[in-house]
Simulated scan of single mutants.
Amino acid sequence: MTQQGTERTGATGAQGEPLPVPDEIREAGRLAPDHWLGVVDPMWSGEGEPPEWVMVGRWRSGLDGEIEEWQDNPEYRPSPDALGWPEPEDEVDRAVQLAVTGYGPGEAVTRALLGREVAVLTSPEGGPLAAVTPDGTPAVPLFTSPVFLHTAGRLASELVAVDALVELVPAGHALYLNPSGPVSMTLELDAVREALRDAARRTDS
């Protein structure tokens, strides 16, 4: 098998300390001497052979079946659990966490938003407060959980249905989901409108 990435002879971690070898890996090594034994991120739930990006790394068993070394996978994308993010507050937060790490589709975020009421900060003139995201995108921040709203500070806010909110967002602005959460996401308004139209068509058919 072709070897890729950086090998650590003796299975040592980033600080030079030995990595703990799981019991199931030790047993697999005894059953399969002289092999690379891949470790998959526990959040991967797909079918068939796991893609390269969900492989955390791999252990090497020697000719005697004992584990000899560890090799990182430079293409690995850590899951929300691996990154230590807190449990999602709601289905939107869950979909965002999965989408930004590559473990779920971006379309799931817009689907999770449909039919919900969300909180928006109110501007002095009334209506949703507009802001700018870290990358400079004009956007309207919205909060799907009271936890994220309270984390944003003691500011005036109101609840609004998502289908009504898209009509209140200023032209050229996006939606900025849960900016005070562990991970946020910018959604183009056209994508939300299209998801609303699709939902309406399914209801009518």
Rank of each mutant, 00 (worst) to 15 (best):
A28K: 13
Y76A: 08
E52I: 03
E91L: 13
Q4P: 03
P20N: 10
R202S: 15
I25C: 00
S123N: 02
L168F: 01
E7T: 14
P170M: 09
G13V: 05
M43T: 03
G29H: 09
W36V: 09
A152D: 09
R26K: 14
E24W: 14
A139K: 06
G13S: 14
E24Q: 13
V166T: 15
W53A: 01
P42K: 01
L63A: 15
E52S: 11
D204V: 15
S61A: 05
V118E: 04
D204Y: 13
G10V: 00
W70H: 11
A14K: 08
W70V: 08
P50W: 07
L98D: 05
R154A: 15
V166C: 14
V162Y: 06
L63F: 12
D23G: 03
D64P: 06
R77H: 14
P50V: 03
G172I: 07
D163H: 09
G57T: 00
V92A: 04
M55P: 00
P138M: 05
A11E: 07
A161K: 14
V192S: 09
T6D: 10
L19S: 01
A139F: 08
P18A: 04
A195F: 14
G106Y: 07
G16L: 02
L189M: 07
T144A: 07
A112V: 00
P86Y: 10
D190A: 13
Q15N: 14
G57L: 00
E7D: 06
W85A: 11
A139G: 09
A131S: 15
T137H: 10
E7G: 14
G136P: 08
D190S: 15
D41S: 04
T2N: 09
V162C: 14
E125D: 15
E68D: 02
T101Y: 03
E91N: 11
R30E: 08
W85K: 06
